[in-house]
């Protein structure tokens, strides 16, 4: 049992570190691209760096469609590089959870398979249902 736990923590620690490095790579290159090109996704640097919450031209997360991500990355658009970096971060804990679920299945610990499945459901519901629903409602 303890042996399993050791392997699991090792995998988790490597995954977490790798994900942080990848995400920081995309965020930093996104910032560089944004500065060089003087903006991104059709927004000027002034709009990107604005804190005005009431102005419709302030660039905030709900204005960037995730479906445009692949083309944005191909076009070397800084905003989509930053978006990808941020989403890699958001997904990091999900990867950790999935590796934990696999470990619980392998060690036939069904109570914890169930508990981690509930956590995964909460996360999935938040990411794929509640968020997009709010987006449509607003």
């Amino acid at each position: 049992m303890d042996k399993d736990n050791e392997d699991l923590t090792k995998v988790i620690s490597i995954t977490l570190r790798a994900a942080v490095v990848v995400s920081m790579f995309f965020i930093v290159s996104g910032v560089v691209l944004m500065m060089i090109k003087g903006g991104g996704d059709g927004y000027t640097l002034a709009q990107i760096s604005s804190y005005n919450t009431t102005s419709p031209t302030t660039l905030r997360s709900n204005l960037v469609p995730l479906s445009n991500m692949p083309s944005g990355i191909v076009n070397l658009d800084g905003i989509y590089f930053i978006s990808l970096g941020l989403w890699v971060l958001i997904f990091t804990p999900v990867i950790v959870l999935i590796s934990a679920v696999i470990d619980f299945v392998v060690s036939k610990n069904y109570l914890y398979v169930l508990l981690s499945a509930i956590v995964l459901t909460n996360l999935t519901v938040a990411i794929f249902y509640i968020g997009p629903y709010l987006h449509l409602a607003s």
Partner: peptide, 20 residues
């Protein structure tokens, strides 16, 4: 991390995250 990931996806779609 897991707790924050849950909240941040909801924050994202609400437009509470400013990229810069």
């Amino acid at each position: 991390g897991i707790t924050a990931a849950t909240s941040s996806s909801i924050y994202w779609y609400n437009g509470f995250i400013q990229f810069y």
